[in-house]
Deep mutational scan, measured.
Amino acid sequence: MAAGGDHGSPDSYRSPLASRYASPEMCFVFSDRYKFRTWRQLWLWLAEAEQTLGLPITDEQIQEMKSNLENIDFKMAAEEEKRLRHDVMAHVHTFGHCCPKAAGIIHLGATSCYVGDNTDLIILRNALDLLLPKLARVISRLADFAKERASLPTLGFTHFQPAQLTTVGKRCCLWIQDLCMDLQNLKRVRDDLRFRGVKGTTGTQASFLQLFEGDDHKVEQLDKMVTEKAGFKRAFIITGQTYTRKVDIEVLSVLASLGASVHKICTDIRLLANLKEMEEPFEKQQIGSSAMPYKRNPMRSERCCSLARHLMTLVMDPLQTASVQWFERTLDDSANRRICLAEAFLTADTILNTLQNISEGLVVYPKVIERRIRQELPFMATENIIMAMVKAGGSRQDCHEKIRVLSQQAASVVKQEGGDNDLIERIQVDAYFSPIHSQLDHLLDPSSFTGRASQQVQRFLEEEVYPLLKPYESVMKVKAELCL
């Protein structure tokens, strides 16, 4: 049975990233139509530049190519590739079939990587351009969430054990800070992308030097003109047959890092959902379990974690691919890159769409948070109580021993009897502590235990987050809708 299948058929496997999760716009960027249309555009740009620099290419040939950029006979191309065992030459023939007058000058002087690699770089750039505003929107939604809850005390956790208090907004800023680093890295790697350009079979530009009869300047002009037509500021000066596969490492490393950030955020949300302090959106008709109707599973956060793990592992592909590119190139890269580049971007696209949807509907339960604080705060307040007693004339050592005994009794009630923490009640009825009984409410005010959390939130948002989001103001209103 021949390899390949009808990918629109229910009898043929289709990647869930495309069929179930990723956005239509990201799927289109990695589609065959987008790819092969870009090949034709690159052939047109090459012909236009070659004509401008004096090669015998007519206006009629150029116009014929322009008129057929979208006229792609995919069936013919597939048949040609089956016959020739070469995808680029299959599309040269297919393009030439609908451009008979231009057929002889299509791909003039070029090698397969002229269309293959340059198209990949265009796709990487455009895919990054799709991700950047999506990530900015996630940051914006979380920034709104953090600002609104900047002063809401909550129990902090280290080692997932109760620690000092923080605020809900401050905790959210930990998430935002990681995503801001990801946004900066995505922008950097996007701006650092260079075009492969017009380089020939081993990167020496020998074929173009021959076409222009040894004119170095025209060869350099050709490279520059096509690079500018493709919208790049610069091209690699040095290439082998391909652009260095280190570029793929750079791009997928940034995406993998984004995956790590999203995994951490969504894990926190899942843990908070278990504590009943916070939940992701839950639709009115949504079913959490087929057997347990009360369940409210954090399905979206779980999906993000599941896909983020996949995204983090994909960076190993370009690392290994770059390491086995012998001399000017081997074909070890080809099949692998067809999979890992598309999957990385479709996965990143999915987790950003999902995280935006989550961040637009996060639900906080202040009463649950308050109750958990009441359970733990008495123990945390013991040092403040000791200091207040010393100020009232008591002995630190005597007070410490009193607190120690009462704390152990209260802990026994919590752990052995399943009761509430009654340390404060014990202190309130103990005559030894009568000098500070009137101060206990103040000493137990949760806001006095959150330090500068709310001020940190305000400063972080104003100095770091809002300036970073400013270039994306025009796209901030787009909502994230999930079908599944």
Rank of each mutant, 00 (worst) to 15 (best):
K224W: 10
S23I: 07
E370W: 08
L255R: 02
C173T: 09
L222K: 04
H400K: 02
V247K: 11
Q161G: 01
S290Y: 04
T330N: 05
T330V: 09
Q161S: 02
V457N: 04
K276L: 08
A78M: 11
R270K: 02
R234A: 13
F145M: 01
L42K: 05
V219D: 01
G361R: 15
T321P: 03
L484P: 07
D248N: 04
G104R: 13
K101L: 15
R452C: 14
Q63N: 11
E280V: 00
N185I: 06
D349K: 04
L183H: 13
S140G: 14
V138T: 09
A410H: 05
E48Q: 09
Q61K: 07
I122F: 12
C180W: 04
N336P: 02
D398M: 14
G451R: 03
S438L: 09
Q325S: 15
D216I: 07
S412R: 14
K147L: 12
T450D: 02
L55M: 14
G203S: 02
P56N: 11
D248V: 02
G156V: 01
D117K: 00
E463M: 07
R85E: 00
G361E: 15
E79M: 11
D317R: 02
D317Q: 09
M278L: 14
G418K: 01
L314E: 06
D349M: 09
N353Q: 09
P467M: 10
P100I: 10
D120Q: 00
R40L: 00
V138A: 14
A273Y: 01
V88Q: 05
N421W: 00
R338H: 01
I139T: 11
F345N: 10
D129E: 11
L444Q: 05
M389F: 08
N353E: 15
L132E: 12
G240P: 06
E220A: 13
S140W: 15
D32P: 15
S407F: 04
P366A: 06
S140C: 15
R141E: 14
K233A: 12
L131T: 09
I72C: 09
A335K: 01
C266D: 05
D73W: 08
E228C: 11
G203L: 01
T354H: 14
V364M: 08
T347I: 11
E481S: 15
S306P: 02
G116E: 01
L42M: 07
R459H: 10
P318Q: 04
G288W: 03
A78L: 09
A110R: 01
Y432S: 11
L341R: 07
M278K: 01
T242W: 00
K367M: 07
R188F: 06
L193E: 06
A110H: 01
P293A: 15
I436L: 07
T347L: 13
Q397S: 09
